[in-house]
Amino acid sequence: MSSDHNDEGRRDFLMVAAGSFAAVGAAGALWPLVDQMNPDASAKALASIEVDLSPIKEGQAVTVMWRGKPIFIRKRTAEEIKEAVSADSTDMRDPQVDGERAQKPEWLVLIGICTHLGCIPRGQSTGDVQGDFGGWFCPCHGSHYDTSGRIRKGPAPTNLEVPPYAFISDTKIKIG
């Protein structure tokens, strides 16, 4: 009788051990199948771009692609800078001072994607609707951004994001 009990215990142990092994193996095999959908090595390698700012005139904006997203680069006029700085103390949904958002006051670099649901706000070309605050206006659900790209009116929860960038010379920036 007791040897029967031993057998049963041994059997249970083996079944549990085999079951756990199977579970670990299945999880291990699942991970590559999930991870393969992440950005691949060639996509990651494209992570940074250099942009020459010299052809951009004051008051003009250009759009460049970075990681498949539009990057808004605007050379702001003195007036626009003044407007942005003077609004620093106003009550905003996502309070941020203009100095935090622009490394050099005349250059504003933003990811041109509305933080609401991913549309591209208008306001890059002359003649575009720029919204109530002279910055950008998102046509999808009516978000208004000011000349610092901060959300001032509409459903967007946060300001237009500033990508990581650095000046590598006076007229050249590296994004990413």
Partner: peptide, 27 residues
């Protein structure tokens, strides 16, 4: 998800899978 069924790209897309996609060579 990674294959491109076009004569100009099929071979290269398979190689892309093998070289760049995470775990692509093993899959």
């Amino acid at each position: 998800m990674h294959f491109v069924p076009h004569g100009d790209h099929a071979f290269a897309s398979v190689e892309h899978l093998m070289r760049d996609v995470n775990w692509g060579d093993l899959i």
